[in-house]
Every structure is written in C-alpha cells, then in structure tokens.
C-alpha cells in the first residue's frame, strides 16, 4: 500500500518501506553469490595458462591468416550438403509441426481429451534436445551421413516451429472465427478461412527464421558425422590445417549472411 498519509496529506511512493528493505536484501545476496562464485572459479583456474592466452590466441590467428583459397574447390560439395540439410530438415519440420500446432493451440484443438497434452509434450520434448545431440543419436542409429543431419534438424525444429505457430494461432482474432462458424462452415473450413489467413505472416516469418538458424546449426552437425561442412572443419582442425579452417569460417560467414538476407526479404514480403 504505497499511499500513506503524512501530516494530513496523502503521499505516494512506488514501494512501501518494507519492500524497499527487501529489495536491498536481494541485491546484497546477488553480490555475495557473485563474489563467492568468483573465488570458486579462481581456485580452479591455472592462471599461467590464462596469462599466456593473448600470445596463444595471436599465434593461432597468425597461422590462420592466409586462408587456403585453393581449398574452396573441395568445399562446394559439403557446403551444398549443409544447405540441403538445413532446407530439407526445415521443410520436414514444417510438414509435421503445422498440424501439431493446430492440435496444441487452445482455440483449434480437437475436442478429444489428452490430445492437446500429447501435442504439447511432443513440442517440449523436441525443443529440449539440441540438434547436435539428436545428430549424435541418429548417427548411431542411421549411420553417418546427410540423412542423419536432415532428421536431426527436423526433430529440433518441430518444437520450435510448433510452439511459435501455436502461440500465433492462439493470438488470432476470434471475431472472424465466429463469423465463419455462423455461415455454417465446417470446423476444417473455419480453420482454413478464419485462422490460416491470420497466421500466414507469422508462419512465413517463423519458417524462414528457423531455416536461417538451421543453416548455422547444420554447419556444426558434421562434427558428429552427420554430414555437411562440419566434417571438413573437423578434419582440418585434426590435421592442424589452420589455413583451411579459416577458409571454412569465411565460407560459413558468407552463407549465413546470404541466408539472413534472404529470410529478411521473405519476412518483408509477407504482411
């Protein structure tokens, strides 16, 4: 109750004295934990190595400096694989996540008990596991290669697309829904005419955004053998071919820039 009476006049403060005291106490605790953690980390660090870090970093940079331009000839195929892993993985995820989102959204879920909970569970499960871990598991099951990468990307993206899409569906305006139901339309037609047009911009935005993320994620999947440019990266690191490593970095940077430009264009086009 921030309104108090002082000398017969009502005075207003944002917080009562008690909440002010509590706020200070919380700040004190945060600082105390910070100091304690610093000590903990400090005791377990070999400071000689840290002191050496700028020299080591500089050394590594120097070795990378002339990127191995000739090496690019061998990189186009793995780069193409990477883009395909990201694109096909995203498409597969869209196909699975879209119906899932309609089941998960409160306003479009079928009146079958338990179905919505199941859809939400699938979404959460997919979101809680990183694509790299999915890839690790899939490489063991399916063997190394592009297919494992595609499925790993798809499994991770289902949750992402599903969650953002079902939130967009839940936020859609209920008025056209009511109007379309009033014409005698079937439930499926209602979704098609009243919900789909409303979530179209969100759908396009979410899909290209996830594709953009997947391009970046696909570049590292090779580390566990799931195909793409990551395989080359790991091979180059293993033989300490730093010129090749920096060449791969440059290529990844260019690809990510291109994908970001493309997804910005798509998002601007759909309004």
């Amino acid at each position: 109750m921030p309104v108090v009476t002082r000398q017969g006049q009502p005075a207003w403060r944002l917080r009562t004295p008690r909440t002010v005291l509590l706020a200070w106490l919380v700040w004190f605790l945060i600082v105390a934990v910070l100091v304690w953690s610093w000590q903990f980390v400090s005791e377990r660090t070999i400071w000689a190595f840290v002191a050496d870090a700028p020299r080591q970093g500089g050394d590594l940079m120097a070795r990378m400096v002339p990127p191995d331009w000739a090496y690019t000839a061998m990189l186009w195929q793995p780069l193409w694989d990477t883009i395909n892993i990201a694109t096909l993985g995203t498409l597969l995820a869209i196909v699975i996540a879209t119906p899932l989102a309609f089941v998960a959204a409160r306003n479009t879920t079928p009146a079958l008990p338990g179905l919505r909970a199941l859809a939400l569970l699938i979404i959460v499960a997919s979101r809680s596991i990183n694509a790299l871990i999915w890839a690790l598991l899939l490489v063991m099951i399916l063997g190394p290669g592009v297919l494992s990468g595609i499925i790993a990307i798809a499994l991770r993206s289902i949750g992402f697309i599903g969650k953002l899409l079902y939130e967009a569906i839940e936020e859609s305006d209920a008025k056209p829904v009511e109007a379309i139901i009033a014409t005698g339309a079937s439930p499926a037609q209602m979704r098609l005419y009243a919900i789909v047009p409303q979530v179209m911009p969100a759908f396009a935005g979410i899909s290209v955004y996830r594709w953009d993320i997947n391009i970046r994620e696909a570049t590292i999947l090779g580390l566990v053998g799931a195909g793409g440019i990551g395989l080359e990266l790991m091979a180059s690191v293993n033989v300490l071919a730093w010129g090749r490593v920096s060449m791969i970095f440059l290529l990844i940077l260019a690809t990510v820039l291109a994908s970001e430009w493309l997804s910005a264009r798509v998002r601007a086009a759909v309004t």
């Binding site: 109007a179 379309i180 047009p197």
Partner: peptide, 27 residues
C-alpha cells in the same frame, strides 16, 4: 439459413473482398 452481421465487421482481414463474400457459401 441464418445470416449474421457484426459490430466490428468480423471480416477476414487478409482475404480479398471476393473471398470474404464467398465465405458466406462455405456451408
């Protein structure tokens, strides 16, 4: 058999006028 008209129009904003009209035939 029952037409309805709404206070805030309740059109599907991102569809064309023609599509909105045709939605009256969905049944």
């Amino acid at each position: 058999r029952i037409g309805m008209i709404f206070q805030e129009f309740a059109l599907v904003e991102r569809l064309t006028v023609m599509e909105n009209l045709l939605s009256g035939r969905l049944g």
